[in-house]
């Protein structure tokens, strides 16, 4: 693995890891107050009928939520370019 990551690799890795950590904290907070069976009952599918499934759904929901929000933020926030490819300022 190259020691210097490209900017896209950096973005992907940072986004995935930070949202993972945040999702872990939010899963803990959320399920301290809410029984995962509530979620499982709401989905009502046989595939997800244990409380373990409820925790997993909660965690991946928070992770996906953070990831999507972060990805859009990264895309939409404009950076001023610098260096040889810098665009001339538009009024």
């Amino acid at each position: 693995m190259d020691a210097e990551w490209s900017r896209d690799t950096q973005k992907f890795a940072v986004l995935s890891w930070i949202t993972f950590l945040v999702a872990a904290v939010f899963t803990m907070l959320f399920f301290a107050f809410i029984d995962p069976l509530v979620i499982v009952d709401a989905i009502g599918s046989e595939l997800f009928e244990s409380s373990n499934a409820g925790y997993a759904i909660g965690f991946f929901f928070f992770w996906a939520n953070g990831w999507v929000a972060g990805w859009f933020t990264l895309r939409l926030v404009r950076r001023k370019r610098s260096g040889p490819n810098a665009q001339p300022k538009t009024p």
Binding site: M1, A3, W5, Q10, A13, V14, W17, I18
Partner: peptide, 10 residues
Amino acid sequence: FMREQVCKYM
């Protein structure tokens, strides 16, 4: 796989 990259970037 990632090793020190985790510390450097993530």
